[in-house]
Design a protein around this nucleic acid. Sequence first.
DNA 1: GTTGAAATCGGTAATTT
DNA 2: AAATTACCGATTTCAAC
Lengths: 158, 158
Amino acid sequence: MKTVSAVELDGIDRKMLRLLQAEGRMTNADLARQVALSESACLRRLKALEAAQVIGRYAAVINERAVGLPISVFVTVTLASQAEAALTAFEQAVAAVPEVMECYLMTGGSDYLLRLVVRDVDDLERLHAKALTRLPGVNRVSSSVAMRTVVKRAALPV
Amino acid sequence: MKTVSAVELDGIDRKMLRLLQAEGRMTNADLARQVALSESACLRRLKALEAAQVIGRYAAVINERAVGLPISVFVTVTLASQAEAALTAFEQAVAAVPEVMECYLMTGGSDYLLRLVVRDVDDLERLHAKALTRLPGVNRVSSSVAMRTVVKRAALPV
DNA sequence: GTTGAAATCGGTAATTT
DNA sequence: AAATTACCGATTTCAAC
């Protein structure tokens, strides 16, 4: 696996990133015009950003509501042990649950924060009982439902 | 503002969405081949998905570490009041903080959950003091730092 | 401080798809 | 029309003198 460390970016690079976060299918010609570079210079920079994994990929951004997954649930999970093996087992298992969109290991040692997407409360209940509490090493599981998304920023503040 | 409700999707639509979440710059010809449709039929479906806002946009996916924002912080905010006006004032103000990538109103009435991205702990301290605690109507602010991202799923389970 | 090699960066134009 | 490559010129960096 390739861990990517911070990269030197100038103002043009940052402008390219802002534009491409808003409109990922923009043509190179358009992009070049908006950053006031020639097409070849612009493309060279773009390829460098891709090669350095500053741009990891391009993605269609899907409306969660439109595909029937309107509810985000945040789940705090505490493990019984913080032994390396326990963490690894949990992490492998949690990554295999498709509804888990994000999972973070929080400071402190053995607490995880998850964001799930679910269809409805029945779906949440099913997941809670059938998947979450059965993950290896789990001590405590606590769920909070998001009633409404207030901010979902399209672009990083680059 | 256009609120999007759930849309009927068949297996081909879902396959298109999966493919485009992984590779948003795929050409229509490629996409058509992979879902075994003609290019015109494929493009018709794609345009329909875009028009229905199932696909909201296309975006370059940026590596947060590479652009120098390697730390995610989750912040719980409790407001002093749950009056409509207090919520609105808070939400407008929080949306104006660039480091706030996400903000959710949680069930229960006046608790918000935020995800911030920061450069380092100094940056977090600065934000906490200068931005978060000064947001209108804030009663209590509690931050938890993510040590590591375990899962960041590229695609919704469609 | 100047010189010169090498790297960096942009542009033009030709080629490919 | 768009992407890509080849080639050239300008500028910067840096080490040796």
